[in-house]
């Protein structure tokens, strides 16, 4: 096997450490392990071919996630024909904290829900909200990095993140009540 060139070695050193992040994000975006694998592979090949345009010193993880996300939009999203939610379509969910502060002020119930259910609830979010939540809260990207990756204004990133978190909290709360993890609120009518 031939030794990789300097460029090849640099690419390996910069890009390979982010495979976990790429795979996780691909899994959340596609909702399907085999599509996620294809998406990560396509992303890495594209990234390698575009390597010369990449400015060393910029954020490699953000750059790779941008390529992944663009590849997903162009080649994968339409396969699934997901409805694209606009920001206006959704009713503003209430803050969960206000509803349960007396029962569970620290949100301890979140930790009692198994990984699989949390991930399922994330996958069920509308795609536009889900991708912002994944990039922000699961991959630790900043508002600015997400805005750049998704080509949307920072204000849109913030409002989508706000709604995504609230939607996710409501759906996890509903699951927790349903399964008895948390007692239902007593309903005093009036």
């Amino acid at each position: 096997m031939a030794e990789p060139s300097t460029a090849g070695r640099q690419f390996n050193a910069e890009a390979l450490p982010h495979l976990d992040a790429l795979y996780r994000t691909a899994l959340r975006l596609t909702g399907d392990p085999s599509q996620a694998e294809d998406l990560v592979q396509d992303t890495m090949l594209k990234a390698y071919r575009a390597w010369r345009q990449y400015q060393p010193g910029t954020n490699a993880k953000g750059w790779l996630l941008t390529i992944l996300r663009n590849t997903f939009i162009n080649d994968y999203r339409r396969r699934k024909l997901e409805p694209i939610a606009t920001d206006l379509e959704l009713v503003e969910p209430h803050a969960l904290y206000r509803a349960i502060e007396d029962v569970d002020p620290e949100g301890a119930f979140f930790a009692k829900i198994v990984d699989e259910k949390v991930l399922e609830a994330i996958d069920a979010l509308p795609p536009d909200f889900r991708e912002v939540l994944v990039l922000s809260d699961m991959e630790g990207m900043s508002y600015g990095e997400i805005a750049e990756a998704l080509e949307i204004p920072v204000g849109t990133v913030k409002s989508r993140l706000f709604r995504a978190r609230r939607l996710l909290q409501s759906s996890l709360y509903a699951y927790a009540v349903e399964t008895g993890i948390i007692p239902p609120r007593e309903n005093h009518d009036g």
């Binding site: 996780r24 694998e37 502060e101 620290e106 301890a108 809260d137 630790g140």
Partner: peptide, 30 residues
Amino acid sequence: FEANFVLMLEVRARRVECPAALRARIARLL
């Protein structure tokens, strides 16, 4: 409360890893 929620998401995310077979396939392709 909100900080705990976000931390919980971060912890869940970290537990998902790229499968070894995919890692190897990508290394070969590159």
